[in-house]
Design a binder for these strands. Structure first.
Lengths: 337, 337
DNA sequence: TTGTATGCGTTATCAA
DNA sequence: TTGATAACGCATACAA
């Protein structure tokens, strides 16, 4: 059932039927009722491609999955983010296209995306330090928003993210308060903006207090449970093991906790926790000290920001910080404290 | 840059340019070269909406996320599945649209989807026992494939999934071999096909051996770590606690392990493990006895099957079983064994 | 308040 | 081997 058939059925022009269905005010109320009823009865749905072609809007957005880094969607941070953003887009009547783009493909992918006209905008999750996706998007007229922790607050593009440097500072201070002076950092992969920020926050606190800054106290690894476990094991089995560990993400913290348990030692653990549904969501009590934030909410906000930019593309770009919460419990005290 | 501009630039008709770019054989080789070069130089990309309107194909598929159950994508099983399928679709030149659909909306959502013509087919993940999404899709002309464990092998629709009944049987037998005679089942939510299958497999083995079949040895809960923990805690703290636990999914097993550790008891654990990237993927050694399968591969296969059905919609529907592996280690023996 | 005519960018049909 | 022309299904400027 298409517009032509429906209008013929009603003895009206396509124009009138189209107007009635799209809420134009000039349509007689009786006509509108009749049209809506007929549309309902015959299950009429406007063809998305035709409408898009006529209006110039796709009513769809792309969510960019940095395909190199993160085992794609399999990373729970990304999954939560995509879940939240997709909900927000759906609520606004926008479809979500999943766009797994490798760094190598980024240079051409976004120009294509814009030219093909299949989406009205793009949401980039989990930026890297020198992010090729962002760089490519900036060459484009496609509206975009970055969701995740940008490296610098004064970025030229719009973004929503939490203060990763501050999160690392807070968590490190918690460990210091527990009396620890030798703290290992289990960080994310080099190159990811969140890793750079964790390192920066950690270093700033450790340096100010004049504590041990041995470079091998910092380990870069994947954002997985196993990687966290292995990195923690290496640190704990080293000649001068730390008495406390800070991890960049929750999966790594879970792995680190396992490594600690295997050694039945007393090691303090802190992390940034992104509130994963698979861990029980906001219902679950925090498992580690550190910081905690509802990433799904942040992603939702990022989605809304993208919709705003699609509506008004020439608004000056701005960034927004997401709130986070500090979890002070439990911190295992340092030996002898 | 669109076709009209490009053709004018070349002094050719739109028809010829279109044919050259789409690999039609009747185009002179010299012309084709010239056209391709120009298209390259000017970054011409055919408009997806216009092409879709003209061809009747959207070159996009929907991946259905059962929005009621699973905290959406946040469930790692779903995330892995979507990741795998998206890769396969992308490799075939198809875009993926994420379609979070509630059970209530299912009745109308798929008719709309078909009518709107935004996708060429749908992939349904994680079916329920009486799945409203599948029921609604069967009313439609939209090609679809179900990825996940269908309740009956002789389903009328195409599917790819593992043998959930057999998986539960295998895992239960492993526990029996460890000398256990009182086994708790931490199952998924009632209504999910995978839960029904776990229960069926578990019951068939337990019954045949004439073991304890007390109904409160079976607990239904969410597929999260916390839910697994709480269910295990309840079982272990009951008047007559089981000496072994079987969980439906890995996150639940992690939670159950935590509950066991808190009680510092000797409880055997088995599960079906879907190989999550966040746990380290296939690199990581299995953490629990039971069965193990690469869900991402299965999802990839399901995606391919959908593409086949899109290409040949009237092929008779068939189901495919995915392979799984049995992990015999480690099984904690029963007390006194 | 309704209708006519045109355009959106592409592919497909038919003729040359 | 190429081109003119007509769809595809909808929205909209303009006319009535």
């Amino acid at each position: 059932m298409n517009l032509k058939e429906l209008s013929r059925l009603l003895g009206l022009s396509q124009t009138t039927v189209s107007r009635a269905l799209n809420g134009y005010p000039e349509v007689a109320e009786a006509t509108r009722k009749r049209v809506e009823q007929a549309a309902q009865d015959h299950g009429y749905r406007p063809n998305a491609r035709a409408r898009g072609l006529a209006t110039g809007r796709a009513m769809a957005v792309a969510q960019v999955i940095p395909a190199d880094w993160l085992g794609m969607l399999a990373n729970p941070i990304l999954a939560e983010a995509v879940a939240g953003a997709t909900e927000a887009f759906a609520a606004a009547g926008y479809e979500t296209t999943l766009a797994p783009v490798t760094d190598a493909a980024a240079a051409t992918a976004y120009g294509d995306m814009a030219a093909r006209g299949a989406v009205d905008g793009a949401l980039v999750h989990m930026p890297a330090v020198l992010d090729p996706h962002i760089a490519a998007l900036e060459e484009t007229r496609l509206p975009f928003v970055v969701h995740g922790q940008p490296l610098t607050v004064d970025a030229a593009y719009p973004w929503v993210g939490l203060n990763g440097v501050e999160a690392a500072r807070q968590a490190t201070r918690l460990l210091l308060r527990g009396g620890h002076s030798r703290i290992g950092l289990i960080n994310g992969p080099t190159g990811l903006a969140l890793s750079a920020q964790r390192a920066q926050g950690y270093r700033s606190v450790v340096k100010r207090r004049g504590l041990d800054m041995a470079p091998d106290l910092i380990r870069h690894c994947a954002l997985s449970e196993m990687a966290g476990h292995d990195a923690a094991a290496a640190l704990l089995d080293s000649a001068t093991p730390p008495t406390a560990l800070l991890t960049a993400t929750l999966p790594q913290a879970l792995g680190a906790a396992r490594a600690v348990a295997e050694r039945s030692g007393q090691v303090a653990l802190a992390t940034h926790d992104d509130v994963f549904d698979m861990m029980g969501g906001t219902e679950a009590p925090p498992r580690f000290a550190g910081t905690r934030a509802p990433i799904r909410e942040t992603a939702r906000r990022a989605a809304e920001m993208l919709l705003e930019r699609i509506a008004a593309p020439d608004t000056p770009a701005q960034g927004e910080r997401a709130a986070m919460q500090v979890v002070t419990d439990p911190v295992v005290p340092a030996p002898g404290v």
